[in-house]
């Protein structure tokens, strides 16, 4: 945890410096006719952030904050496994949206989570992961008129057929 506290503060300090630098693309000072320039607000706020990261690091050196006193790892083996399986699953879900549509990706994600991670029965996993996208489809596309990404071309016949039910 202690090392993590320094790394986090470091990353946030780098982010602050980047945002300060990016803010200077606009005027960061005061203009007599326009008031403070467009970059002033984010520039000075990022500056305060940078000072804060310094204070966080200083507190960590003096072992004042709870994470800097802790000797526990940020993520133990099980925590790391959870993060890879769960967050990895969500990541793949979002990556698949552009290929097999929001609904298709949702189906696969639900099945992966329920059957593989949740160890539910095959029947329950299949029922939930097939029914959910269908309910979502009719709710969003028909009732709310929100179109979700449909993925690549090969999904077209399926959605055309589903659309004939709506319209």
């Amino acid at each position: 945890m202690r090392r993590g506290e320094f790394i986090t503060a470091g990353v946030l300090a780098a982010l602050s410096i980047y945002m300060m630098w990016k803010s200077t693309e606009l005027e960061i000072g005061y203009r007599s006719d326009e008031g403070p320039g467009g970059g002033a607000w984010p520039f000075w706020l990022s500056g305060i952030m940078l000072i804060c990261t310094g204070m966080i690091a200083y507190n960590a050196v003096r072992r004042k904050s709870p994470p800097s006193q802790s000797t526990e790892p940020v993520l133990d083996t099980e925590g790391r496994k959870m993060l890879i399986q769960v967050f990895g699953g969500i990541f793949v879900f979002v990556a698949l949206v552009g290929i097999i549509s929001m609904y298709g990706a949702m189906l696969l994600f639900l099945f992966y989570y329920l059957w593989f991670l949740g160890r539910h029965t095959l029947r329950l996993s299949l029922i939930i992961s097939v029914l959910t996208p269908i309910v979502f489809f009719f709710f969003f596309e028909a009732l709310m008129r929100v179109t979700m990404p449909k993925g690549m071309k090969f999904t077209e016949p399926l959605f055309n057929w589903l659309n004939t039910i709506i319209y």
């Binding site: 769960v86 969500i90 949702m106 994600f109």
Partner: peptide, 10 residues
């Protein structure tokens, strides 16, 4: 929770 969690993510 393993049913609720994926639903919330979706």
């Amino acid at each position: 929770f393993t049913i609720l969690a994926p639903m919330i993510f979706v």
